[in-house]
Write a protein that binds this DNA or RNA. Structure first.
Lengths: 218, 218
DNA sequence: GACATAAACGGACTTTACCCCGTTTTGTCG
DNA sequence: CGACAAAACGGGGTAAAGTCCGTTTATGTC
């Protein structure tokens, strides 16, 4: 049997050696990143260390940024699965707002943990910017649809919240030592900020639970 | 007299020819961007068309991305001045929230108008990401300090709002034709979304003005 | 199992960002 | 004005990204 029809979704099943080499390249890339840092990984080196030709590297990933994109996608897989089929509050089952908080927190952690690679996906001359999983925006959009906050344009809100998550990490945080205490505290602050942000946005009624400290003035 | 003290703020006054060449290079760069698009501008070409050496180009701007950064900074100058010394609501004088709305709207417009250049400032191997004027975040931070929304960490909120402004343009919008009707509508939607976003965040009390349309269901 | 075909491979080749350093220009001071 | 130091300049050199095309290999068919 088999289906010899090149369905639109799967133009072709990708050859076995291609699959093997892609995996090999990603593994080698990860090793090189670990030992020299993402910015110092060269394509020649990657090809050589993998025992493959340079042409292969570029056919598989298109560009230098493409490799880091693939690396990041691979890392993101676990998060995606936890979101789609894991336990609440990240996975299905919890109320929308809780899931949104959990997702943002997880995404911030993810971008911190993979900061070097994430930054390396940025490339000025890219049609689709990369470094930006549309998945993130789509998931946020989906949760917003469930939460139904009083907001005119949920697509735009999703885009902006995605930017609120990714911007501080992708555009603002310099590539410094991520293990420093100061930066680790920043991570916590971002997570807390996200929680407050979406909580405030999604509360249909006022109900500010506590914290009435700030003066009435003005 | 004169002050032979190399003050910390102004290490050195930059030589006259350097100033002239910087201006010439930026002018040429703008011309090249206009005629081939930012991604197809090469440094050799820029140097040649300016009648200068390649070394000069790199000493002045440090890197390819640096040129686009400088180009963008130049464009941003007018906006900065309008913010710091122009008429309300963008300039001083209007209430904080109004200024915040005006600033976001202006920033979105700016990033749309200069999308190609802004995108070209992104470079994965940059210590400080560029493409991100700290000015933007600082201004937002300042306005938040004035508005005093009930929020734990205004520095973080400023970072996230900056991301909400820049992310959709810098990370999500593909480099397509910006004159298309669809994209122009997107511009409007982002501006409207920003207005709603910050209004909602900064409203100390609920006061949802209208739009109670959406069903109670869940 | 041999054949046909499309896909994948390799590595030399081309292009381009970026560096280096000997030479030239600018600005200052006597 | 002449000399000196500091900065800027030029353009050939280096290395890394990305392309091309002749060769090899996987896969489905008879």
């Amino acid at each position: 049997m088999k289906e010899p029809l090149p369905q639109l979704g799967k133009p072709r099943p990708e050859r076995a050696d291609a699959v093997r080499n892609r995996a090999l390249l990603l593994e080698t890339a990860r090793m090189l990143v670990a030992e020299r840092g993402a910015t110092d990984v060269t394509m020649d080196e990657l090809a050589a260390r993998s025992g493959l030709g340079k042409g292969t590297v570029f056919r598989r990933f298109g560009s230098r940024a493409g490799i880091f994109q693939a690396l990041l996608d691979e890392e993101e897989l676990a998060l995606q699965q936890a979101v789609m089929a894991g336990d609440p509050p990240l996975g299905p089952g919890a109320p929308g707002l809780e899931r949104l908080i959990a997702y943002g927190t997880a995404r911030i952690g993810f971008l911190f943990d993979n900061h070097e690679i994430a930054r390396a996906t940025l490339d000025g001359g890219q049609a689709v910017p990369a470094g930006e999983s549309p998945l993130s925006r789509m998931h946020i959009r989906m949760l917003l649809g469930e939460i139904k906050p009083a907001f005119g344009d949920l697509d735009v809100l999703a885009a902006q919240l995605t930017g609120a998550l990714d911007g501080p990490l992708m555009l603002q945080l310099p590539a410094e030592d991520l293990s420093s205490v100061k930066v680790q505290r920043h991570r916590q602050r971002l997570m807390q900020g996200w929680t407050e942000l979406v909580t405030r946005l999604c509360a249909s009624s006022p109900g500010r639970p506590s914290e009435e400290a700030d003066g009435v003035h003005r």
